[in-house]
Design a protein around this nucleic acid. Structure first.
Lengths: 150, 150
DNA sequence: ATAAAATCAGAACAAAAGTTCTGTTTATCG
DNA sequence: CGATAAACAGAACTTTTGTTCTGATTTTAT
């Protein structure tokens, strides 16, 4: 995978300074249970999960860069759409016309290089846009990527 | 989070048998780099990533249960839809009518308790349905949940 | 063996999303 | 100060999805 290579440019090898120990007892316990259920070692499971999380994190990075290039209005529209609202509902919330929302969405999709809302919602599936929801009081913790309202 | 509680029912405390060490040098190196970039310890980052992956894994479980209750045809339709195909394209691939695909999709959505395609694609965003793609030769590795064709 | 339930299939119509335009207004840069 | 680009707004039209039906054909359980 190019992912690994990308994070380690050519000769900049870094010698692991120490053994990587997962000290959190909560995580340790959950992993032990999974290990028992699956008949694999906790180490093996942890490695798989870390690989998954790292690749998810990497995948999110490119979209994060593109997100920065959206205009304020486009970000707002994208956030609400990713929260599950329809064009009509977004239009009502932002007090602009239905067609305008679609224009912003289209421009945002172009900047993301995505083809439709479904793709976008899929790509940004675990970004936390709750801070963009006018009704929400306090933003919740984000699992992968939190998108600030700046 | 109820996630942690759910995985450890009441008194079934399991004493961690040994220290949980991440031995994979590849992962170790990437984590070290991230640690340097972010100014946090690799241990801390690994713990965060593991928490993320575990909660994603847990979230996938309920949908996995519901997936089992879909009929073969429904699974096939869902898989192709999640691969990004439209109703029309799925109909062409499965050689059934466009309307029939929509019926199967509707029934599947009901069983998933989801409201529309976008929600479904979002919910199953990192399931690997490549094995369902007739054109694919060999299934690829799945990051979170692999859905076999059985 | 047969009643009930699930699956598979589709029609008709309504709603939402997608596409391609055309304009204004606001920043930005030389 | 213009010129140019970006942002914002929307109309008209096409395609895709969503909803609500109806009705065959299996399975499944009693």
């Amino acid at each position: 995978m190019s992912f690994w290579k990308r994070l380690r440019p050519s000769g900049t090898r870094i010698a692991p300074s120490a053994e990587l120990v997962i000290a959190d007892p909560e995580i340790q316990r959950v992993l032990e249970e999974l290990a028992e259920q699956e008949g694999r070692s906790a180490q093996q499971i942890a490695a798989d999960l870390l690989r998954y999380a790292l690749s998810a994190r990497y995948a999110a990075q490119e979209y994060l860069r593109r997100w920065q290039r959206l205009s304020r209005r486009e970000q707002q529209v994208v956030a609400l759409l990713c929260l599950g609202y329809s064009y009509r509902e977004v239009a009502d919330q932002l007090i602009v016309s239905y067609d305008t929302v679609k224009t912003h969405a289209r421009n945002a999709l172009n900047k993301f290089e995505l083809r439709n809302l479904s793709e976008m919602r899929q790509a940004l599936a675990d970004w936390d846009f709750s801070a963009w929801q006018s009704t929400s009081t306090a933003p919740q913790a984000a699992p992968k990527a939190t998108i600030d309202q700046r």
